[in-house]
Amino acid sequence: MSFFALQIAQTLGATVVATTSISEKTDRLTKLGATAVVNHRDHPDWSKPVRAATNEEGVHRLVEVGGPATIRQSLASLARRSGEIALIGFAGGGSTAIDFWEGTRTAARGSFLLMTTPVAGSPAPTCTN
């Protein structure tokens, strides 16, 4: 899946930070155009090198195939205001339960208000943080 997602992102002009669990894939991912490749077996807290590769900004789009096993690291890898996750698999095994509110406990209050106010039917507030 990582090769396919990388090729689509490259076609659309994205800068790609790829993750893999197999060191042998690193060269191929780089040749296909990944700006950085992080082995998540070597870096259990792989969101840290992903954020480092983006000058601490985080990624704007993330293709998540691990599911509950990797969702926390995926959330930690996101850009604070514009990050999106495309959850397309549960390859990590285990429970299929995911705490989708996880990010709201770490996000700035203003970002949380921007996200939830339209759901409540009120106009969205101006975010200042």
Rank of each mutant, 00 (worst) to 15 (best):
V59L: 06
A34D: 00
P68A: 15
P49Y: 02
D27V: 07
H43M: 10
W46F: 11
E57L: 09
A34K: 02
N39V: 08
G58H: 02
S74Q: 03
K25Q: 14
G67L: 12
H43W: 13
K25D: 11
E64N: 02
R72N: 15
A53C: 05
K25P: 05
A34W: 08
R28D: 15
H40T: 04
T70Y: 13
T70P: 07
D42L: 10
G66K: 09
S74P: 04
A36G: 02
T26Q: 09
H43A: 13
G58T: 05
T30W: 08
G66F: 14
E24P: 10
L62D: 02
S77C: 01
E57S: 09
A34T: 00
T70H: 11
L32H: 03
K48G: 08
V37Y: 02
H43G: 00
V59I: 08
V65A: 15
S74V: 10
T70I: 14
I71P: 01
H40L: 11
L62F: 11
A52N: 04
E64H: 09
R72G: 13
V65K: 03
S47H: 13
A52F: 10
R28V: 15
R41F: 15
S77W: 01
V65Q: 07
R28M: 15
V59H: 00
V38Y: 04
A36R: 03
K31E: 12
T26D: 10
D27I: 06
S47A: 12
D45R: 07
A76N: 03
V38A: 04
T26P: 09
P44G: 05
R61Q: 15
T54G: 03
P68H: 15
V65M: 13
A76W: 10
G67K: 06
R28S: 15
P68I: 15
V38G: 01
N39G: 10
S77T: 02
L32K: 03
L78K: 01
D42H: 07
S77N: 00
A52I: 06
A34M: 02
K48W: 09
T54Q: 00
K25E: 15
H40I: 14
K31R: 11
T70W: 08
A36D: 07
P44T: 02
D45M: 12
G33P: 07
V59E: 01
K48D: 10
R28F: 11
